Amino acid sequence: MALKATAGRSVDGSYGIGRRLSAWGVHAFTASGVVLGLLALLAAVGGDAKACLGWLGLALVVDGVDGTLARRASVKEVLPGIDGSVLDLVIDYLTYVVVPAVFLYRFGLFPTGFGIPLAAWVLMTSLYCFSNTGMKSGDNYFVGFPAIWNVVALYLWILDLDPWINTAVVLVLGVLTFSTVKFLHPFRVRKMMHLNIAVSAAWLASSAALVVLHPDRPDVAWAVWLASGVYYVAVCAWRTLRGDARG
C-alpha cells in the first residue's frame, strides 16, 4: 500500500520544513522571555522600577500566549527532542521569581535588615512550586500559590504598603505554596475562559497605566485594577471551597 503525506508530514512520517520552522519559531518566541527577564533584572539593579515592571509585563504576555501557539503548532510532535515545558519553567523561574525577588529587595519593600532573608524565602518556596508534579488540578487550576511573584511585586509597589505588611503578605503566600488552595490560570481553565481572558486583559491594561503614571492613580485605571483583582480572588475562593474536581 502506498504511503500518503498527511498533516504536513512527508511520506516517511517526518514533518516538512514549514512545520518545523513554525515549531522552532514558537520555541524562539518562548525563549525571548529570558531576554526580557535580563532587561528587567538590569532595570531593577539600575534602580528603574517602572522599566523593570514593564519588561516583566512583556514577559508575562509572552508566557500567557506561547502555550496556545505551541499547541497550534504541535511543537511536541514536530520537535520531540525539545521539551517546551522545561524551557518554559526555566524562563518562568527567572521572570516570575528571581527578578521579582531582586525587585522587592532593591526597592525597599521589605523592612531594613530583612531584605535578603525574605528574598531567599521567595526563591526557596518557589522551588517547590516549580518542581511539584501536582501543581495543576484536573481542571487546570494551580494547586497552591503558583509563585507569581511578579504580580505580587507589582501590587506591593503600587499599593505602597508598610514594609511589615509586605512581609506578612510574602510569608503567607510562601506558606500557601504548600497548600491546596486553588489559583486561576486564565488561559487554561475552560470554565468561563472568555470572561477570564477579558478580565486578564483589563487587568494588564490597567496595570500598565498605573505603572506608567505612577505615583498618580487615574480613577478609571485604579477602579479596573482593583475590580479585576477582586474577581481573581473571588474565583480562586469559589474554586477552593468547591473542593477537588476532575478534568
Rank of each mutant, 00 (worst) to 15 (best):
A2P: 15
L3S: 15
K4Q: 13
G8H: 11
G8S: 11
R9I: 04
R9V: 02
R9T: 15
V11E: 11
G18C: 10
L21W: 14
S22I: 09
A23M: 10
H27C: 09
H27N: 13
T30H: 04
T30K: 03
S32T: 15
V35R: 00
G37S: 09
L38N: 02
L42H: 10
A44W: 06
C52D: 06
C52M: 12
L53C: 02
L53A: 05
R72H: 10
V78G: 02
P80M: 10
G81D: 11
D83Y: 07
D88A: 01
T95C: 07
V97Q: 01
V99F: 07
P100S: 10
R106W: 02
F107A: 02
L109G: 05
T112S: 11
G115M: 09
G115T: 08
I116K: 04
S126I: 08
Y128M: 02
C129E: 01
N132Y: 12
T133E: 11
G134L: 04
K136F: 12
S137V: 02
Y141K: 01
F142H: 04
F142Q: 04
V143C: 07
G144E: 07
I148H: 05
V151E: 03
V151F: 07
A153G: 03
A153E: 02
A153F: 05
L154E: 00
Y155V: 13
Y155C: 11
L159I: 07
L159Q: 12
D162H: 15
T167H: 01
V170K: 00
L171R: 01
V172T: 15
V175A: 15
L176G: 00
T177W: 00
T177V: 15
F178C: 07
S179R: 06
T180E: 13
P186A: 03
P186Q: 02
V189Q: 02
V189C: 08
V189M: 07
H194S: 14
A198L: 14
A201V: 15
A201W: 08
A202I: 09
A202F: 12
W203R: 06
W203H: 13
A205M: 10
D216W: 14
V220L: 15
V224L: 14
V230K: 03
Y231P: 05
C236Q: 06
C236T: 11
R239N: 06
T240K: 03
L241N: 03
G247Y: 09
